[in-house]
């Protein structure tokens, strides 16, 4: 399959690294000419698209020419991470896509490997979440929904992605901020934003939580009513108040990032950070952000490492509150 994928990519000019990543390690001083991008998810998903956008931006702005893609899908990255750590250790041109979802997945699955084993390179994008109700719902504002939830938590059902994922985490955080037990949330897990949307459009559930991009078109068409977004502040062109404005003191971004392999030298880490820095400042990446409706929340190397540590602590806490971690 790996070969077949290569043939497909060559055939359509998407390119393949002839070097297969076996670059001499003394080349780290000069700029990287090739990258191996490791996606711990199936082709087509959010992480894969992040990887493809990185490839497209670096290629268009002539920063890196050759790319090799590898996918290891499964369990929110819990399958791919050990594989990346095992096979890419010490390789300065390996870049793994990951994000907040992986933090929760590793905790819930009691994974033996940790994200802190990796070399942090950059936090790239973030997507805030949105709380919606069906068009016909009696709840007009977040306050209405919060009041209904406080009165009878069990009667308010929330549709979203898989248990322990970002949508569920936000539900737990909101419950806590509203003074309720996160375990009391009637959370209805769907395998993705699509089936959850269907449940909302069919009035099967009280409310729904998902990434803004998943629900935005239904909101624009008036089929779903957006009550609040989980961003830190109001967003340009989006007429929806934040949770904080409405008295629910919660802020959450579903962030996506890239990591280097464990055990690489500081110069190698710097080379990867430099590539990302140049990409983020280039026009092609900015165009990709706009097209995909992603918010650029770039955070380089060490600062991202510090942020990651804080996120792991925060998410572990909320998963414990939800009864999903010990």
């Amino acid at each position: 399959m790996q070969t077949r994928r290569h043939v497909l990519q060559c055939g359509f000019g998407a390119g393949v690294a002839a070097t297969l990543g076996l670059r001499p390690q003394h080349a780290e001083a000069q700029a990287l000419s090739s990258l191996q991008i490791f996606v711990p998810a199936a082709p087509g998903g959010g992480w894969d698209q992040t990887g493809r956008s990185i490839e497209h931006a670096l290629r268009t702005d002539a920063i890196v020419k050759d790319f090799k893609f590898e996918h290891a899908p499964g369990a929110g990255g819990a399958v791919g991470l050990p594989k990346f750590i095992g096979t890419k250790k010490g390789q300065g041109d390996a870049l793994m896509v990951g994000g907040m979802v992986m933090v929760g997945a590793l905790i819930a699955n009691k994974s033996p490997v940790k994200m802190t084993d990796l070399t942090p390179v950059a936090r790239l994008t973030g997507e805030f979440l949105v709380v919606v109700v069906p068009e016909a719902s009696p709840h007009k504002t977040m306050q209405d929904l919060a009041a209904a939830f406080k009165a009878a938590p069990g009667k308010v059902s929330w549709a979203g992605g898989s248990a322990g994922g970002s949508d569920h985490i936000l539900a737990g955080m909101m419950a806590r901020a509203m003074g309720a037990d996160p375990k009391a949330v009637s959370y209805v897990a769907y395998s993705g934003g699509g089936p959850a949307q269907a449940a909302l459009l069919g009035n099967q559930v009280t409310a729904g939580i998902s990434g803004w991009g998943e629900f935005s078109e239904q909101i624009k068409a008036g089929k779903l009513r957006a009550l609040a977004i989980s961003a830190d502040k109001r967003q340009d062109g989006i007429d929806v108040p934040t949770l904080k404005e409405q008295g629910v003191d919660v802020e959450l971004f579903n962030w996506r990032s890239v990591f280097g392999a464990p055990g690489i030298k500081p110069e190698q880490q710097k080379a990867l950070v430099d590539v990302m820095e140049r990409m983020v400042k280039g026009p092609a990446w900015q165009a990709e952000l706009k097209k995909k409706d992603w918010t650029g929340i770039y955070l380089p190397g060490a600062e991202f490492g510090k942020f990651l540590g804080e996120e792991i602590t925060r998410i572990t806490g909320i998963l414990k509150d939800l009864g999903l971690a010990t």
């Binding site: 994928r5 497909l8 990519q9 359509f12 000019g13 998407a14 199936a42 082709p43 087509g44 894969d48 698209q49 493809r52 490839e55 497209h56």
Partner: peptide, 9 residues
């Protein structure tokens, strides 16, 4: 999914 890069072309 494997053919998605085609959408750039």
């Amino acid at each position: 999914a494997l053919l998605l890069p085609l959408t750039y072309k």
